[in-house]
């Protein structure tokens, strides 16, 4: 009996120590609430009602250019952008896999921009995608496949190992969002209203290699199979970003792939005029991403394609969903009107 109590006491001490460690760890890790807010995007999905018929997956070319609220307003489509900065194809694959553990959309739209990268780009980008993911098999997969040489798996398990130096840089944000979070997107869409027109573009560089890496095809195959196995329509898209340059050589490879696999590919760069995008006012960063007016044009255009070709539900007529979107639209419309 006495021995049991001793063991129990030791266990309590160890648990308290781990709790203290977790609290300190939480304090020093970035909150992504008002700075580097992109690091919080991945987690904004978890609190959602999982009723999306369309899921967008990819990098900034998704979360800056597609506004799910416009898809809903135009055609009653429910959708969410699961986008993170510089999202790599194996990350997209794991994020899709994770999404399918929550819900089964009718359509998955994947940004093909990620195919340009066949190895991890930097720890900074990894952190923005991974830090705020819920623990799951997919998170473990993403960490293991994304780590650069200098990173360790343990630093993702124990953020204190990575962020202990932030101890001296803690701000009010770290206290305010210690047990709280701040949502910065509208169903995954990052609203930017500034205007910075396209003026001078840098020289179009020759590349060392235009061939997508084998690993990219491996994960693209995985995504394709995942969609086919779940009876989901997969659409590959290239956002209408005029910089960084998108090359003919890339397009040819994607066209070959979709032809072989019976998938649809839309390169929005080819139909900029048809969409109505005006790069003297529809971009906030000289053509890399669309601003609100540009994203609205693209989203309305895409909503019609989705509605016409994919038999999606008009949720504006469905009471429980429209009630949720009524609140979402109030917040969205308010943000649209704010200076």
């Amino acid at each position: 009996m006495k021995k049991g109590i001793k063991i129990l006491k030791v266990l309590v001490i160890v648990i308290l120590f781990i709790m203290l460690l977790s609290a300190v760890s939480r304090l020093v890790e970035p909150k992504y609430a008002t700075e580097l807010i992109e690091g919080h995007f991945i987690s904004e999905y978890y609190n959602e009602e999982k009723n999306h018929e369309v899921i967008f997956i990819g990098d900034c070319e998704m979360y800056s250019n597609i506004s799910p609220m416009e898809l809903y307003k135009t055609e009653g489509i429910t959708s969410f952008v699961r986008g993170t900065p510089q999202q790599l194809i194996w990350q997209s694959s794991a994020i899709l896999e994770e999404t399918l553990t929550y819900e089964k959309p009718k359509v998955v739209v994947l940004s093909v921009n990620c195919l340009k990268y066949d190895k991890p780009v930097s720890e900074a980008y990894n952190r923005l995608t991974i830090d705020k993911m819920k623990w799951s098999k997919q998170k473990v997969d993403i960490i293991l496949s994304s780590m650069t040489e200098e990173e360790s798996f343990l630093s993702y398990v124990f953020p204190l190992l990575r962020y202990h130096a932030r101890w001296e840089e803690l701000t009010q944000e770290d206290i305010k969002y210690l047990f709280d979070s701040k949502e910065n997107t509208y169903n995954g869409y990052l609203m930017e209203k500034d205007i910075r027109p396209v003026e001078n573009l840098p020289t179009k560089r020759e590349l060392s290699n235009y061939q997508f890496g084998d690993i990219c095809y491996t994960y693209l195959d995985k995504i394709t199979k995942l969609c086919k196995d779940n009876n989901i329509e997969l659409i590959l898209v290239k956002a209408p970003s005029v910089y960084p340059y998108w090359y003919e050589e890339y397009d040819k490879q994607i066209e070959n792939y979709v032809e072989k696999n019976g998938i649809r590919y839309i390169n929005f760069l080819d139909i900029i005029a048809e969409i109505g995008i005006d790069y003297s006012k529809d971009t906030y960063d000289s053509g890399m991403h669309l601003n609100l007016t540009g994203a609205r044009k693209l989203s309305v255009y895409f909503a019609k394609i989705l509605k016409n070709d994919y038999n999606l539900t008009d949720f504006r007529d469905i009471a429980n969903v429209s009630a949720i979107y009524k609140k979402k639209l109030e917040a969205y419309n308010k943000a649209v009107l704010e200076n």
């Binding site: 992109e38 900065p85 510089q86 930097s122 910075r196 001078n200 573009l201 840098p202 906030y284 000289s286």
Partner: peptide, 17 residues
């Protein structure tokens, strides 16, 4: 005069060419 500026996706600040 030909400087291309864009918000960095991963860092605070502007990338320039």
């Amino acid at each position: 005069s030909n400087v291309y500026e864009a918000e960095s996706c991963a860092f605070d600040g502007i990338e320039k060419t």
